[in-house]
Write a protein that binds this DNA or RNA. Structure first.
Lengths: 342, 342
DNA sequence: CTTGTAATCGAAATCGTTTTCGTGTTGATA
DNA sequence: TATCAACACGAAAACGATTTCGATTACAAG
């Protein structure tokens, strides 16, 4: 508060700016108009130091060039803005090491709490010490999407089991009997759970599950390459299993691979093969046929995560109970699924 | 540096942690091992206050759920991480007011400099006082993608005119004679410039431009709605102009609308109508036919912007010359364009 | 024995703000 | 006239770190 040294002390100026009753109206007016004139803005760093609170939340996501994650960030931003919080974003690039490094970088006064989407490698390694440490040292943490039960933190998820069930049941309702699924390896929680839902739906319909119809595929970093690999894999699969009439994919990219493979084999979608997927993103709307999908409500997820985190940050209560928030999903009907005409 | 009070003073501990020569090896070892044991991390806020530098860069983008912008952020993150900078992201939602508000929020000690992609509304209003003020008060600013010449800041852009020319020339080389363009209103700089390039290419090829073949369309916030509106508009246009054999679109979403409209009218792409677009994103790869496009190198753009900004931040020289960095683009050939067989 | 010089360490200023507590002035009241 | 309250303002601590400068000790050299 440098230049304010016209004739008043630092404390007087501070009080004047805060409309303190201790200061005469005359002085207040003088200081305030002067502040406006010189575009005075209090230094947030100094405030942070004084208040022991930065009013910023740190977000760690696996990647940002990914519609779902960017939607989550949007939700976080929206909720944060409303409570006058800033958002600092860091990407782990699906790497355990980056995740740890970024968390350490931020967790030294820069932020008041974390919202974290765990990286694939972290889940694979099954090592969550870095998260546990945050929790132990009283930095509030909210996990979203990819969560692990053993961590004592708030969690925001969609009900993946239920969604997997819902989307599979839709295919069954369409008269499909031989339904395959393209999912992820088990260490990706969401893939595993959606698979569970798929199995549940089959079970409820009295359709015996078939190991061969479960394809576990882990995409690489490059969209095109991943697409191509999976496409070839699926061409083989569909060629060897011509009776498949329904296919669940666990994300949009995989669904595109399915559409490509089907086109190669001149299999008509949705007539011969109905396809459903997850994530109501740009791809689902842009492909032909457009994709029947489960909307994951990324924005809503981000909002809820931010609200939960800010609650934790501002809560004075030392003992806190962790909660798990479930975001409802919606089945969005498009062109890639239809009733099977026999 | 609270708990360090075992027997030493604050200053001694600080020096010991920094391996000062003033401190005996014995003491240094003691302090350092103690620090490790207690997971001591210096408080970044205090450091920022002392050093008058936050090692954080503020990024203002119009929206985050947008592949190009998220790629730019990724590039910024990558370059920032390398120089130990943090990144704080803020979205303007294409709103002037949000842009101003977010800049003000951050520009009070929270960041050392800005990387800004201007909002549509700001460009429309043609009001850049808030940016000028940053520059005046010596907060370094780098503009990217959507820039304005009158601002005395570093700029990172792609050569939109040249790219527009390149992509149009490709259609001409494919033997297309009646080439239309779907672009934005003129206040969106990139759309305006790409249109210029389009006109240049036509001119070079001796093809007289046709006002009717220039469609200026401004999308709304909703992808689906925008898509639908433009699709209808294009159905009309293509029906009334059956001789159109080439079409340039200025972004991927518009290209999807073109593909849809063509399908409605049973116009074959690329045979009857070749389509080219901008942004080598997920959509270009996912549509059928996949889209010939100009790669905008978002990641590279972000990197260069971050490097330029950090240069400015760390430069001690009071007089700085602004520079404009041009990121080269590449034409990526896919299925939506082909030579016209007569 | 005095003085000089490393070698170690601590006190205090600094960054910009808020806040507690004190201080001085004014005017009214006893 | 002396006392007291109300009013207006300032001094200084605090937040957590670095850093300059000074202080102390011990030991060697003169």
């Amino acid at each position: 508060m440098l230049a304010k040294e016209l004739d008043l002390s630092i404390s007087t100026v501070s009080k004047a700016l805060h409309d303190s009753h201790e200061i005469s109206q005359e002085t207040k007016d003088k200081v305030q108009s002067f502040a406006k004139l010189y575009h005075y803005k209090p230094n947030n760093i100094a405030l942070s130091l004084k208040n022991q609170s930065t009013k910023t939340i740190g977000v760690i996501i696996p990647e940002i060039v990914h519609e779902f994650f960017s939607k989550v960030i949007q939700g976080i931003e929206e909720a944060a803005l409303e409570k006058d919080y800033k958002v600092i974003v860091s990407m782990s690039n699906e790497s355990y090491e980056s995740e740890v490094h970024n968390i350490e970088l931020l967790n030294s006064g820069a932020i008041d709490g974390f919202i974290i989407g765990l990286s694939k490698e972290t889940l694979e390694k099954n090592n969550f010490e870095h998260i546990q440490e945050c929790i132990n040292y009283n930095t509030p943490v909210v996990l979203f999407d990819r969560v692990v039960d053993e961590l004592n933190a708030d969690k925001v998820i969609i009900n993946d089991v239920e969604s997997g069930r819902k989307v599979t049941k839709h295919l069954i309702d369409c008269g499909r009997k031989n339904i395959a699924i393209v999912t992820t390896p088990d260490y990706i929680t969401v893939g595993k759970k959606r698979l569970e839902g798929y199995l549940e739906a089959l079970n409820e319909a009295g359709i015996p599950p078939n190991e061969n119809n479960i394809i576990k595929f882990n995409g690489g970093k490059s969209f095109s390459k991943t697409l191509h690999q999976l496409e070839e894999l699926l061409v083989d699969f569909l060629k060897n299993n011509p009776d498949i009439d329904g296919l669940v994919t666990v994300n949009e990219a995989n669904a595109v691979a399915v559409l490509r493979a089907a086109r190669q084999l001149q299999i008509e979608v949705p007539k011969q093969l109905s396809v459903v997927t997850f994530s109501d993103g740009i791809i689902s709307k842009s492909t032909f046929p457009s994709l029947t999908t489960i909307s994951q409500q990324g924005v809503e997820m981000g909002k809820q995560a931010a609200i939960a985190l800010i609650d934790s940050i501002e809560s004075t209560c030392p003992i806190k109970k962790v909660k798990t928030i479930e975001i409802p999903t919606k089945l969005i009907l498009r062109e890639s699924s239809s009733f099977k005409s026999t």
